[in-house]
């Protein structure tokens, strides 16, 4: 049985997946995936609230990068980390995202009251 566990776990260790340490690159990959998902969500969704969710994902992906570069122990020896600056910027991004969500939701609800729909393809009143 030990052999069986060993056989399936050893490749994982050989890849450095479980016994290696986490570096900034790991966080950058996560941030890239969140950012891409948010961009696609903003571009594809036809529900106005889906577009808002895409914006939240994009901001969150940027936040992941800020926090990773601010972290003192994800960086190499000689690298200068952002330090507290990155964390403060991440905090401001969270606060401004809350403000943006409040205004965008108010606009969406207003649109829904006037047009009885949340499909953004129907928001073409300004088309010439």
């Amino acid at each position: 049985m030990t052999f069986g566990i060993d056989a399936c776990v050893t490749p994982v260790f050989a890849a450095g997946l479980l016994d290696g340490a986490v570096s900034v690159t790991h966080y950058l990959v996560v941030g890239a995936i969140l950012f891409t998902a948010g961009i696609v969500c903003m571009a594809v969704k036809r529900n106005a609230l889906g577009v808002l969710m895409g914006i939240e994902l994009v901001l969150n992906g940027a936040n992941v990068n800020f926090v990773a570069f601010a972290s003192p122990y994800l960086r190499g020896e000689n690298a200068v980390s952002l330090g507290l600056d990155g964390q403060v910027i991440a905090l401001f991004v969270i606060l401004l995202a809350a403000a943006e969500a409040a205004v965008a939701l108010a606009i969406t609800l207003n649109f829904y009251n006037n047009h009885s729909t949340v499909d953004i393809d129907r928001a073409d009143d300004l088309k010439g």
Binding site: T25, L28, G31, F35, T36, R75
Partner: peptide
Amino acid sequence: VAASLLALLLQAAFSVDAWRRPA
């Protein structure tokens, strides 16, 4: 679009060697 954007971002993430060495 997502695949190309992700490829670009991942290439940037892996491009700097100092980012891959944890302290």
